[in-house]
């Protein structure tokens, strides 16, 4: 059976949402940062043992304040991927507040929290900031591809369970 699921990638600007989507959908990566305005919507089919899932991925523009995100973008979402940049504190210092906002307003929508640009930090840095990263599900690198497939697979399983 084929089913469609809408996934929205959220987070500050410049954290690598578009790069993660590109890596996942097209298996490409570019170092050039091009700002996303509005939303790019891409589709990728994912084959799971029992289902084929069409992932409709909404790569929306970054926003420092999640409450200012256009509600129309989030409407009808089946899953969220909250992305932050592990090298920029400003992108994860309000992580708890943002997650609370999503849980309060989209109660049943599963969320995966992703610390991107993992290739730019050291394990010592991760250890030092471990308390800030308690809620992180995956550390990814769109550049190397580390854990990128995994986050989408994991979210898809959560969405259809």
């Amino acid at each position: 059976m084929t089913i469609s699921k809408k996934i929205v990638l959220l987070g500050h600007f410049g954290v690598g949402k578009t790069s993660l989507v590109r890596r996942f959908v097209e298996n490409t990566f570019s170092d050039n940062y091009k700002v996303t305005i509005g939303v790019h919507i891409l589709k990728k089919e994912m084959d799971l043992p029992e289902n084929q899932v069409n992932l409709i991925i909404w790569d929306i523009e970054g926003n420092e304040d999640i409450t200012a995100t256009r509600s129309s973008y989030l409407m009808g979402s089946h899953g969220f991927i909250y992305v932050f940049d592990t090298t920029r504190k400003s992108t994860f210092e309000n992580l708890k507040r943002d997650l609370d906002h999503l849980k309060n307003n989209y109660n049943n929508v599963p969320i995966i929290v992703v610390g991107n640009k993992n290739d730019l930090i050291t394990s010592a840095y991760l250890k030092e900031n471990s308390s800030l990263f308690e809620q992180v599900d995956y550390f990814t690198s769109a550049r190397t591809g580390k854990n990128v497939e995994l986050i989408f697979e994991d979210l898809t399983k959560k969405m259809i369970s």
Binding site: S4, I41, K43
Partner: peptide, 11 residues
Amino acid sequence: FHPFFESVIPL
């Protein structure tokens, strides 16, 4: 035609 409409039609 475009995946945007795929996620809008159910709404």
